[in-house]
Simulated scan of single mutants.
Amino acid sequence: MRVLAAMSGGVDSAVAAARAVDAGHEVVGVHMALNRNPGTLRTGSRGCCTIEDSLDARRAADLLGIPFYVWDLSDDFVEDVVEDFVAEYAAGRTPNPCVRCNERIKFAALLDKGIALGFDAVATGHYARVLTGSDGTAELHRAADAAKDQSYVLAVLDADQVAHAMFPLGDAPTKAQVRAEAERRGLPVAHKPDSHDICFIPDGDTRGFLADKLGEVPGEVVDEDGQVLGTHSGTYGFTVGQRKGLGISRPAPDGRPRYVLSIEPVRRTVTVGPAERLAVAALRAVDPVWNCPAPQGPVEVHVQVRAHGDPVPAVAELRGPELHVQLRTPLTGVAPGQTVAVYSGTRVLGSATIAGTTSAAGAGTSAGTSAGTSVETS
């Protein structure tokens, strides 16, 4: 096959490209330039898409003896990832930019361009597996290494995208073995630190980044009865489940910590309350994407709402354009804007964007019931 290897300049994508070459594919490396003003050097494990990263990717491609190109996708990245990120926070939601990047850049813009140029697949350094099902179709599964599994951020891929995806590291037992393989191959990135946090906010100051983009939008921090406890400079500085940095002037009457329960950007209010009010019994999600036939009727599944979160048993059901999920085990700190990924065993069935939740408070001990009050339905 003709394979387009996405090479970020890190160890995972370099080894993935090497394995694709070893498998006998005709491989071409491509580095996606996503930053309009790339820095010269990374700061440890922070940031990506720097000049250093592009040079590291080129050196790896040269060592593998494959053609290498840099494609400027910065306009797509700004529009589809950065601007989307800002708009979601402004609307009181909590997005995952890595999910959006995989959906709209790596497996939309990049894959579409690759297919148009005659490539059969895109190979990346993600830790996930594409297996052939009993009906001959491609299935997306969790990686062999549960600690590195990245299937959650890939759950937004549709069936056609999964069919054209290649994840050579999916069967790798551990990341340490991938680094050891890179060293044996003589790849100069063998010990390069992994990148963390949000790539376009290399200093890690998400609140400062959003403040620069959105300006001050002052409002009030209130309790569940509407009593004003403090003020803030923008609801975008908060996420559901947040405990620190709430700007509260006095403790709760019982002395227990408060947490963000909901965010109302129109009224400019942030509602806080006790930890038990964070427990969620049900989810309502929109814009579902399936890489298999959409489920008919209620189905027993496992769902995951964070990249490194634990999957929990649930019942999922499509009701018109929405996905409704009853959780067998309540989850905490679930926010609108997050992605809910749906699994059957190790297989990813699809995903949707959380639009609202139902609190487990008052639902008794029967996990997964629909009892409770709405915490956030924006």
Rank of each mutant, 00 (worst) to 15 (best):
L4H: 11
A6V: 01
D12Q: 07
A14H: 04
V15R: 13
D22I: 02
D22Y: 09
D22R: 14
G24T: 00
G24V: 00
G24D: 06
H31M: 03
M32A: 14
A33M: 09
L34P: 00
L41N: 12
S45I: 01
S45M: 10
D56H: 13
R58M: 12
R58T: 02
R59M: 09
D62A: 14
L64F: 07
G65K: 05
G65P: 03
I66M: 11
Y69G: 07
D76S: 13
D76F: 12
Y89L: 07
A90M: 06
P95H: 08
P95D: 00
C98L: 07
V99Y: 14
R100Q: 09
F107R: 12
L111H: 05
A121Y: 07
A121H: 12
H126Y: 06
R129V: 01
R129A: 11
T137E: 06
L140C: 07
L140M: 08
H141T: 01
A147M: 06
D149Y: 11
V153M: 14
V153A: 14
V153H: 11
V156A: 15
V162M: 13
A165I: 00
M166F: 07
G170Y: 02
Q177W: 06
R179W: 01
A180M: 02
G186E: 00
V189L: 07
V189C: 10
H191L: 06
S195H: 13
I198L: 11
C199H: 13
P202S: 08
D212L: 12
D212H: 15
D212P: 03
V217E: 07
P218L: 06
V221R: 02
V222Q: 14
G230Y: 03
T235L: 09
L246F: 03
L246C: 05
G247C: 09
S249K: 15
S249I: 04
S249G: 15
R250K: 13
P265H: 09
T269N: 12
T271Y: 10
A275K: 12
A282H: 05
A285I: 02
V286H: 13
Q296D: 14
Q296T: 04
G297T: 01
P298Q: 12
A307K: 13
G309P: 01
G309H: 08
V315N: 09
L323H: 04
T329Y: 04
A335K: 09
T339W: 02
T346C: 08
A352E: 00
T353F: 05
T353H: 12
I354Q: 13
A355V: 01
G356M: 03
A360H: 14
G362D: 00
A371G: 11
S374V: 04
S374Y: 02
S374R: 11
T377L: 05
